[in-house]
Nucleic acid binder design. Sequence first.
DNA 1: ATATCGTGCAACCATGTGGTTGCCCTATGC
DNA 2: GCATAGGGCAACCACATGGTTGCACGATAT
Lengths: 107, 107
Amino acid sequence: MGDGVGAVFGALADPSRRYLVERLADLGAATPTELAGELPMTRQAVAKHLATLAHAGLVHGTREGRNTVYRPDPAPLRDATAWLDRVGAQWDERLAALARHVGRASS
Amino acid sequence: MGDGVGAVFGALADPSRRYLVERLADLGAATPTELAGELPMTRQAVAKHLATLAHAGLVHGTREGRNTVYRPDPAPLRDATAWLDRVGAQWDERLAALARHVGRASS
DNA sequence: ATATCGTGCAACCATGTGGTTGCCCTATGC
DNA sequence: GCATAGGGCAACCACATGGTTGCACGATAT
């Protein structure tokens, strides 16, 4: 996986991880075992997914007593959105340039 | 890779594929060999990446004579942005709910 | 008609990834 | 102190993925 935006897109490519992000965005905070209870997989698998999400900066886990609480971080989402917007704008700008060219040709 | 949004995120996870999307959004159309000339990999590798992007709906290839021309399609980008906005809104809404709760507790 | 260029397809290889099980460590409850 | 619950770490397995090479096929140019 690439760094920065690449890690975010890579993390969001897996449906289980997207579910975890949605669930954490809804709950605000949760432990791996809580989340594992809602998914058809082992706690360790969920922990790995959370580690991937943490590596992408989408969640952060802090140890509180004997259980670790994970909280979401929306900042990388904005980075990913920024990339999408940039490419979309690039596309639109090219379309506009094409329209200008066509308009000049037809005038 | 998952269908729909998952395929888009999975396709955008690879830096080479992001480069291809950006380049195609800039050029408007290009052939695999043209694109392969700008990347440190084989033409077939680029063709595979283009196939992945096409499977995600981000590009479409049409055969014109003896060369295949690939053109970008921005529609899946909007789907991905919609997912990011939805989760971001979920996060913001939870923050607002927390603020309401704190406000009520302090009143 | 023949050579050539651009593609597509298939096999193959190395590595990464999702998932499992097993073990150990640390913090809580009695 | 001792049992127990939650978590991290490591090994392991099956399979997907990124990349390569080789070859066959259709379209163009001479």
